[in-house]
Design a protein around this nucleic acid. Structure first.
Lengths: 249, 249
DNA sequence: CGGCTGCTTGAACTTGTTCAACAGCGGTGG
DNA sequence: CCACCGCTGTTGAACAAGTTCAAGCAGCCG
């Protein structure tokens, strides 16, 4: 397996074969699975491992005391879960599996050691958390300023780009396991309104969505509707032009 | 001056006198000021320094192509600005002064060196960025799920707590230089609606706000309205119980 | 077949927006 | 000293975007 985590981190720093191997090793430690729609970690817990999503989709979410729920981010293959808690101790949100999920558990002390001996990796992980924060800022913009139609368009663009970097999009298509309820909880609107918004986007030929497959016939058009500007994802770090080439595997 | 940055980072790790001194030194490098309502850094730029807000309030904000603007966070004294860009290169958002702002500029290479030689500091800075991300998640929840009244209540609670940790709140009062327009841009609503919401909160005795001074007569009550749970701020790290004691200064 | 989940539709309703006007205040320039 | 300007806050009334409630339908799985 060409290591997913290495694939991601290569976007930020150039890793030696040696470092890639160290990552691969740490990921192999223990592989676990979660059933669809089950929690992986709950708010308030103090997990002992950092998790790497290997397969499937998960979400970070927070609940309000009265039961309202907000999805604050999507975790796609290659994403790390509990880096927060690795440093911060207790979870301030929950993580749930959307689809069946396979993830790797990496013990804190191993990561600790790795960071100590390989500053390049430590730096790459730090960068990874900064990108996560950048994405969160963009969500803030979506929820604060974009209309329903713009939000959905933007979200689809973001997910598509992220899937592309882990080679999970094919041409103009990708998987889209989100229900309209999920989309609602992520975009801060009701499922009913998500439904009508999706219909509008479909009617205009901006998206095709059925059988959990999303097709974006004209990417530029959808990007324009969502006012999507991918710089916040910080891909293609100039320091590592090779990051996206098919060379490594 | 008891160093502001040290004061903040002590929340996460215990720093030796030596390390505190290193921080203080790096902060003294160059002190600059920005006039109120001026930009400090603009989206797309690649600043060469990490900035520490020493005095005054600033904002991170993003603009949409059509001019809509979202404030994505407030930068209060003790907050770092461009840690992102220290690692990520180009700014994906702008930073603007709200009030007159004094800030310290810390050259990248100094921080680099510091991080290399003092892993405790590197770790503390990383933690700091994780807390920033946690705050951003909570904003996502506010914008996605909370009503106007809840959003304002929550925001006031958050700002108040953050000011408290840098000793800028007195009893139940703190400064509140935000205009209703600012509040609107932060909470994703119009200034008009902010106005009516503030009146509602005033009428109920939950806040007193005039002359740019905010008073919260009954903190618990406001927290309940905003469904504010401060754990996401990750204060009082158990590893450093002394962080909030008045001992250091 | 029955029951579940997810999608769709309609109609009434609510929250927050838009537009417009005005008041208060501080600063500036004549 | 006053007139004037721009900014912030306030208010009202019409309006729009998104919600709520309710019902029905399709597909799927046991």
């Amino acid at each position: 397996m060409h290591n997913l985590l290495a694939l991601k981190l290569q976007r930020f720093v150039t890793l030696s074969d040696d470092e890639v191997e160290a990552l691969a090793q740490i990921c192999r430690q223990s592989i676990r699975t979660a059933r669809a729609r089950r929690d992986i970690v709950r708010e308030g817990e103090t997990p002992q491992h950092v998790k790497l999503i290997v397969d499937g989709w998960a979400i970070r979410y927070k609940m309000l005391p009265d039961g309202r729920r907000q999805i604050v981010s999507f975790l796609l293959p290659g994403d790390l879960c509990d880096l927060n808690v690795f440093l911060l101790d207790t979870m301030d949100h929950s993580i749930g599996a959307l689809t069946p999920v396979t993830y790797a558990e990496m013990p804190h002390d191993l990561i600790d050691m790795m960071c100590e001996h390989r500053p390049a990796l430590s730096r790459a992980l730090w960068m990874e958390s900064l990108v996560v924060a950048a994405i969160q800022r963009e969500w803030t913009v979506s929820l604060g300023q974009r209309t329903a139609r713009e939000r959905i368009a933007h979200l689809f663009c973001e997910i598509f780009e992220r899937l592309e970097t882990v080679e999970l999009a094919e041409g103009d298509r990708c998987e889209m396991p989100l229900t309209q309820i999920d989309l609602g909880e992520a975009t801060g609107m009701t499922a009913v309104h998500v439904n009508r918004t999706l219909q509008e986007l479909r009617r205009e030929g901006l998206i095709v969505l059925n059988n959990r497959i999303l097709t974006i016939p004209d990417r530029q058009a959808l990007m324009t509707v969502g006012m999507f500007n991918p710089t916040y994802l910080h891909y293609r770090n100039p320091k590592c032009e090779t990051a996206r080439t098919p060379a490594m595997e």
